[in-house]
Amino acid sequence: MKILIVLALLLFVIQLTGCTNSTPRVKPAPVYQHGERVGGGSTSALEMPEIGTEEGGEYGEEQGEEYRVSELDSEVPQAPTESPVTDLSSNSLRGGGEQVAYAGSAGTGASMGKAAKSLLDKAESQQQAGDLSGAASTLERAVRIEPRNPLLWNRLANVRLQQGHSDLAVEFASKSSEFAGSDEGLKQNNFQIIDMANSPR
C-alpha cells in the first residue's frame, strides 16, 4: 500500500516537473480571487417605480462615468466667498479648477456645525482633485447631518453642474435658494448655476 503511494507520488512529481501545463505553486488559493466588477443595467420585474433613483439611468453613477470631467468644468460659477457683496462684483465665472472659499456663516445666514463644515471642506478638496463623485457623496453625507443648510445644497448643485447633470444642478440650486433666507449672495450664485445649466452647451 505504502509503496504504491510512494510510487504514485513519484510519478506525480515527474508529471509536475515534466508537464508544462501545470500551474506553478506560487499561485494563491482562490480565496482572494474575486469576481470582476458587477455590471449594471439589467432590468427586472420590479414594478415599483417609486423606489430607487427614478432618474437612475441619467444620474446612476458607475465609477467610470463618474470621473469624466464635463466640458462645463471651466464654467462653474464660484460659490460666494466671505463677503457676498464683493463676490458679486468679482463674479467672473472663473475656471473650475480654481477653488472656492467657504462662505462664512455670517454671510449665508445659516450657521454650520463643525461636522458639516468638515465634510464641506473635504468635498471641496475632492472637487479640486477632480473626484466629483466623491465630492457629491461627501456633500450628501453632510446634507444628512444638516438637511436644511443652503450652502450644502449650493455646493451639491455646483458639483452636479460640473458633472454635466444640469437638471439636477437646477433643482439643487433652487432648493438652496429656498433655504437661503436673506442670503442674497448665495441666492445670486444659485441663479448663476441655474442660468448656466439652462444655457445650451
Binding site: V38, E62, S137, V143
Partner: peptide
Amino acid sequence: GPEDKALKRYPLTIKR
C-alpha cells in the same frame, strides 16, 4: 465590490 472597490452609488436626486 470586492477589495473595497466602489461600484455603484444611488445618489440623492430631487425634483420639484
